[in-house]
């Protein structure tokens, strides 16, 4: 019973990831694609959490925090590139 609930939740998250993938491919502007990729990363965290419940293991809990950090840094780097044209500048007060 519990396993069926987890599987249904996984199917729902997969559907939402497909919808986000549509936005990544179709999205008219680049910020649309960046936000869709960020949300895909967050959905991936949910998938990992559900699968670690399904497999009954603690081994993937680090991956969840890791993906959160990586999605944050990646989105910030993309946002700064879109705003300024360079990601790491030497002196920002120049």
């Amino acid at each position: 019973m519990f396993q069926i609930i987890i599987l249904i939740a996984l199917a729902c998250i997969s559907l939402s990831m497909l919808a986000l993938l549509y936005r990544v491919i179709k999205g008219p502007s680049i910020p649309d694609r960046v936000i869709a990729l960020d949300a895909m990363g967050i959905n991936l965290i949910a998938v990992i959490a559900l699968i670690s419940i399904l497999l009954d293991t603690y081994a993937f809990l680090e991956v969840i925090l890791l993906l959160g950090i990586l999605a944050f840094i990646g989105t910030i780097a993309f946002a700064k590139y879109l705003e300024k044209g360079e990601i790491i500048e030497y002196d920002r007060n120049k």
């Binding site: 840094i73 910030i76 990601i87 790491i88 030497y90 002196d91 920002r92």
Partner: peptide, 10 residues
């Protein structure tokens, strides 16, 4: 890298 992005290299 997060420090470098939020501030700058200096």
């Amino acid at each position: 890298v997060l420090i470098m992005i939020a501030f700058d290299l200096k």
